[in-house]
């Protein structure tokens, strides 16, 4: 279980009010896509969930326990950039979470413990489609591969919540579509509640179970400082997507979770008759 509850959360930086009275319950295993214009506090919201910033007023709880204002291993994160460590190889990057957990002083693993951790990391690397690149450094990977690596790195901690800050914003459309498929599969297969900030409406509606929009109701220049953004839209995707269950309504929408055979636009396999 990993239910996030925000109760009348405000965020102010000095005189500047950023977010006003956000009350929200994010169900366990939901995939919330957070949209809104630039500067409306989406990233601030994510930073509060992450623990990097504390709310000025109000409480955020995860499974009923108030969040401490410090990032921790129960909440994974993938940023648009700088999510992976440039000085570690792909394997080293994925391994790091395990190493931190098992080796508090030396921060290195040896022998059987290391082998076990490597096995687990290798499985995850294969899962995100990076097998064969284990010994490469991030600078030798493409942008899409770096984000896949960042996902694997976060998932080895088995976090309750995965926070994504415009993770696929810098990728070209083809690569983005591929990583969407991966993201959807990971969400189905792991015990994750996902909160994703995005600029891309299409992405929000392709991946999310729920799309939330932040907006400033008062946005005249003289009002901008004293009025923050509020939650302006809260849309549950219909027909609903449920984690771990393939969609029966529109399979193509959730490709490739369930295969219903070939559609009318697919090429028939050579020498076979399509029933």
């Amino acid at each position: 279980m990993s239910e996030i509850v925000l109760d009348k959360v405000w965020k102010e930086y000095g005189d500047q009010i950023v977010l006003e009275k956000i009350s929200l319950t994010i169900a366990s295993r939901a995939f919330v896509a957070l949209v809104g214009p630039s500067g409306c506090g989406k990233t601030t919201f994510l930073k509060m969930l992450l623990g990097e910033e504390a709310p000025s007023q109000g409480v955020i709880t995860l499974d009923g326990v108030p969040l401490i204002a410090e990032p921790g291993p129960d909440r994974g994160v993938v940023f648009q950039r700088y999510s992976v460590f440039p000085h570690l190889t792909v394997l080293g990057n994925v391994l790091l979470g395990k190493v931190f957990k098992r080796s508090p002083m030396a921060a290195r693993l040896f022998g059987a413990e290391r082998r076990a951790a490597i096995d687990e990391a290798m499985m995850l690397i294969a899962e995100v489609g990076l097998n064969g690149s284990e010994t490469k450094y991030p600078a030798q990977l493409s942008g899409g591969m770096q984000q896949r690596l960042a996902l694997a790195q976060a998932l080895i901690m088995k976090p309750k919540v995965l926070l994504l800050d415009e993770p696929f914003g810098a990728l070209d459309p083809g690569i983005r579509a591929e990583i969407h498929v991966l993201m959807k599969r990971l969400w189905h297969e792991t015990e994750l509640t996902v909160v994703m900030v995005t600029h891309d409406m299409r992405e929000a509606f392709t991946l999310g179970t729920r799309v939330i929009a932040f907006e400033r109701p008062r946005d005249r220049p003289e009002e901008r400082e004293r009025y923050g953004a509020v939650l302006s839209r809260d849309i549950d995707i219909w027909p609903p997507r449920i984690a771990g269950e393939p969609s029966i309504f529109a399979p193509d929408r959730d490709d490739p979770v369930i295969a219903l055979g070939l559609g009318q636009d697919d090429l028939a396999p050579q020498g076979d008759i399509v029933p």
Partner: peptide, 22 residues
């Protein structure tokens, strides 16, 4: 980058571990 430190914290790193490995 601030993101790196945050990421290391979400991987469970302590100050000492982050100093040593990141």
């Amino acid at each position: 980058p601030r993101e790196q430190t945050i990421k290391a914290e979400t991987l469970g790193g302590s100050s000492w571990q982050i100093a040593l490995r990141v």
